[in-house]
Amino acid sequence: MHRMVKLLIAGLMLCIGQTAQAAIISQFIEAETRQELRAYRLIKSIEPQLQQLFLALPMQQDLTLVYGAQDGPLFAPELMQIQIPYHFVTEVLSRFTKDEYQKTGVTPKTATQDAILHTLGHEYGHAYIYANEVIVLGREEDAVDTLATLLLINAFEDGAEIALSAADLFALEDEDIDELVEDDFSDEHSLDAQRYHATVCLIYGSDPDKYASLLAGSEQDAEQATERGAMCEQEYARQNDNWERLKSRYLAK
């Protein structure tokens, strides 16, 4: 028996210029278990933030967010859907809880919400590239990781802190790997450790004074940390400039 689908129109119309509009539609599959219900409530509690996230880089084409999907997280271009399973949310929450993430000053629940925002930014990046036929030289997965971090930083006052929780999730996932195999190197995604360092680099570059400890606490010596810091500042400046070009180039006419 198919589960009942609850359609919730988020009420978000992304206005681009004076003539074009794109709707972001939230679609929730009915939760059947206690864990799914918890995931549903966790997502619903940040829905206003989800709307704010997409406003930072509006798109011309309508997009549906399907929560409670069987597969994912993923972007389905043929459907113009971002699909997020409830089990993904519960697995992330369990991972942060097991790691006692509250010791960082951020609760596992908040860290999970942060990771959801970054994940949606990542999949939205795929949707944006597809809808606008954006040329990407290199790995698209790396490009949308960068885009997700920039989305957070530009959409929220504490966006870098949100991205930091997502980076820590990459680090936790890397800890689960006992040994790398050939398939890890041929995967479409970069290694979790690489995704962690790339995200942290952008966070540091966005505010070197505030996030100095992200590099100072590494095992690198002082000279290497200084070189790494300078490179991250340059990388953030370059990518933020690309962000501004992206918005202006693909703005609806």
Rank of each mutant, 00 (worst) to 15 (best):
S94E: 13
T112V: 02
L12W: 05
G159P: 09
Q224I: 05
L180E: 07
S248R: 09
V136M: 05
D184K: 01
Q83S: 08
R34I: 15
S45L: 12
D168I: 05
D183E: 13
V134P: 09
A225T: 12
D158V: 05
H87Q: 08
N132H: 09
L246I: 09
S248A: 10
M80L: 15
M1T: 14
A155W: 02
Q81T: 02
G159I: 00
G17W: 01
P85E: 00
A22S: 09
N132D: 02
I9C: 13
D241K: 12
A23Y: 08
L172V: 02
D62K: 03
A230I: 11
E244W: 14
Y40E: 05
M13Y: 04
A31H: 01
A163S: 11
L42N: 04
A216Q: 12
V92Q: 05
K103Y: 13
M4L: 12
P48E: 00
T97W: 03
Y40K: 05
I82R: 00
A20Q: 11
P108R: 00
A171E: 07
I177F: 04
H189F: 04
F88E: 00
G138D: 07
T19G: 11
G205Q: 01
H122L: 10
S94I: 07
G205D: 03
I25E: 06
T146P: 15
Q224S: 07
Y211M: 09
T33A: 06
A167W: 02
